[in-house]
Design a protein around this nucleic acid. Structure first.
Length: 396
DNA sequence: TCTGGGGTCCTAGGACCC
DNA sequence: TCTGGGGTCCTAGGACCC
């Protein structure tokens, strides 16, 4: 999709059309998640805070995001993709990869499919998208980046070389600012140069990634599509608070809240994990995380909380804290091993009862008493949201 | 005036084991 | 007189993505 959240807002509110707008989260410490093409002209970028954005574009209109609108649209888009191929990977809330190798002859070829999808999305949702067609997803993604907005570009095999020859490295999916800087230090500035670079030099500098980089420079990519949802490797939540936290009790209450969000999601989708991490960010933006590996797998709020706070106790905290994060990793499917222990069976029954009450009456309706006086944090949608499974992070 | 939140993958060093 | 080689697991940090 082109400027997805912003386009949806402009579609539903005609007063916003043709104007520079930016979709933000609620709360003062939010950032720009999407900006309209009108705002991009002024140099407004994703990740800017509202002061920077207003400096770049004084008449910009800020719109607090409406998560339900975007997730609803995303689910509708998925249905459109599936009309053209069963092999569709919904990569993020506004992006998908479609393998039409075996179905494109049914619809008049890949370009015809691209145009049909564009027309149907415009018709049903009133927003535009850009389609990139190529032999692999690295190049398809590049094609769509080149053709944005509201475009369609097909990179055919014989065109790959000329498209890549003078292309700056950072335009490639997978090469960010860090790698760009290191490659430039080696005298490599374009994809063409990367494709001709010495593999042994790259392997020496970058390890396994080195060979991969060389292949990318030649436009090669063999990543398959993940049509079925993969099991997650970690489940985590973090929060920047409306104001910095300073009291120990306040901090622990927020860790309990995050532990409950993590545990609840793990329980909902049947995962248990044996590593708990705590992330801390101070007001000066110094950020670090510490982890602890457990003896047993768990998804119990209280065990996650206990481990996170014992990590907290091992840190000499500075005066105040801007952000806290709790993450459960080393995940496996829960096959009810935990029922072997009588006390854990009771705990599990308690959590199940709490979860079903909260399913019915809303999150945090039934909660530990120590958690009662917490701040209400702003919620910003993550663009990494997916329409199904455990990655369908609660966005209510 | 101040900088979100959800992830994955890779590396390097150290502890420990046989 | 001078200390191998194979492995796993754990932790912290940094790259990348949307």
């Amino acid at each position: 999709m082109d400027a997805f959240f912003a386009s949806v807002e402009q579609k539903t509110n005609p007063k916003l059309r043709g104007k520079p707008i930016a979709v933000i989260g609620s709360g003062g410490r939010t950032v720009i998640t999407t900006r309209s093409y009108e705002a991009r002209k002024y140099g407004v970028k994703t990740g800017m805070n509202i002061y920077e954005a207003r400096k770049a574009c004084p008449h910009i209109i800020f719109v607090v995001g409406n998560n339900e609108k975007y997730t609803h649209t995303c689910k509708g888009l998925q249905k459109i993709y599936l009309q053209f191929t069963p092999d569709a990977e919904v990569y993020s809330i506004d992006e998908a990869f479609l393998d039409v190798t075996t179905t494109c002859h049914l619809f008049g070829g890949p370009e015809a499919i691209g145009n049909s999808i564009k027309a149907e999305i415009k018709n049903r949702f009133g927003i535009t998208c850009t389609v990139g067609i190529a032999p692999n997803i690295l190049l398809a993604k590049l094609a769509s980046d080149i053709a944005k907005p509201d475009g369609l570009k097909w990179i055919k095999p014989e065109e790959i070389k000329s498209v890549l020859e003078d292309l700056p490295l950072k335009e490639l999916w997978g090469i960010g600012s860090g790698l760009t800087g290191k490659l430039e230090a080696l005298g490599i500035r374009t994809c063409g140069e990367l494709g001709r670079a010495s593999v042994s030099l790259l392997r020496n500098k970058f390890g396994i990634i080195g060979e991969h980089l060389n292949a990318m420079g030649m436009g090669l990519c063999n990543r398959p599509l993940y049509v079925h949802e993969e099991d997650p490797k970690s489940i985590g939540h973090s929060m920047t608070f409306p104001r910095d936290l300073s009291g120990r009790r306040e901090i622990e209450a927020e860790i309990l809240k995050l532990s409950e969000m993590v545990g609840r999601r793990a329980r909902k989708y049947g995962f248990i994990g044996r590593r708990v991490s705590l992330t801390v960010r101070y007001p000066d933006f110094e950020t670090f995380s510490r982890q602890a590996t457990l003896y047993d797998y768990t998804n119990h709020t209280h065990e996650i909380y206990t481990n996170a706070t014992s990590i907290l106790n091992s840190i000499r905290l500075k005066d105040s804290v801007r952000l806290l994060g709790v993450c459960l990793s080393c995940l496996i499917k829960d096959c009810n091993q935990m029922l072997l222990f009588e006390d854990r069976r009771k705990e599990k029954a308690l959590l199940q009862a709490m979860d079903s009450v909260n399913d019915k009456y809303g999150d945090f309706n039934l909660m530990w008493a120590s958690y009662l006086k917490q701040l209400t944090p702003p919620r910003v949608i993550s663009p990494a949201w997916r329409p199904s499974g455990v990655k369908n992070v609660d966005v209510k």
